[in-house]
């Protein structure tokens, strides 16, 4: 892949690439990943297939919205700091505009009888969506009984006191490091993938 010359036109192209794909992804940031791959790997040929796999692996281990992280890192790898900023703005601006319009509509109509009734029906579905996100994550990330115990412990801690969320997250990470290292010392290393997924 030849190095593209980074000029204003190229930066604008990056901006519009992300500007265009961002409003096409329904169903959260994960939905944007395949669309982004299609755009930057196959259509624009800015990054190679192996590169994008690495990028997606890296951004999943960073906090923040996945789509925003992915766009910024792709922009950064393609055209440095300015590229990152262009991709970042491109990915957030369209959905921001859409949400402002939706927000204004919600405020205008929220006291309408039918809107109230509709929202009454929608709220349980929102709870189901949250629960299903946890369920889907647990299928890949709850590798063994220790993981299950950490999940149970987090729930109990949060039920006891909601404000302990940072404590829960930080101790989860520390526990991970401690447990994995103890198991290595004991010569019983933890497999970091689920038994069913081992090749």
């Amino acid at each position: 892949m030849e190095k593209k010359r980074i000029n204003f036109k190229f930066i604008l192209e990056i901006f519009f690439s992300f500007f265009k794909i961002s409003p096409l992804s329904f169903g959260g940031g994960f939905a944007m990943i395949p669309i982004m791959e299609e755009e930057v790997v196959h259509k624009k040929k800015w990054v190679k297939k192996e590169q994008i796999v690495d990028i997606f692996a890296i951004i999943q281990s960073l906090p923040g919205a996945i789509a925003v992280n992915a766009a910024s890192l792709v922009g950064y790898q393609v055209a440095g700091i300015v590229g990152a900023i262009a991709a970042f703005l491109g990915v957030i601006l369209p959905t921001f505009a859409i949400m402002v319009i939706f927000g204004a509509m919600l405020i205008t109509y929220q006291h309408n009888f039918y809107v109230q009734a509709a929202l009454q029906g929608i709220r349980p579905v929102v709870v189901a969506m949250i629960a299903s996100a946890a369920f889907k994550m647990s299928k890949v990330s709850l590798i063994d009984k220790t993981c299950l115990a950490i999940t149970a412990l987090s729930i109990v801690t949060l039920l006891y006191h909601k404000s302990l969320i940072f404590v829960v997250i930080v101790s989860g990470a520390i526990l991970g490091i401690v447990l994995v290292n103890i198991r290595i010392k004991l010569n019983r290393p933890v497999s970091l993938v689920k038994a069913s997924e081992r090749k």
């Binding site: 994550m137 987090s154 729930i155 997250i169 447990l179």
Partner: peptide
């Protein structure tokens, strides 16, 4: 290894 289960919680 520990962070993901905590997030699920």
């Amino acid at each position: 290894y520990g962070l993901r289960p905590a997030i699920i919680g």
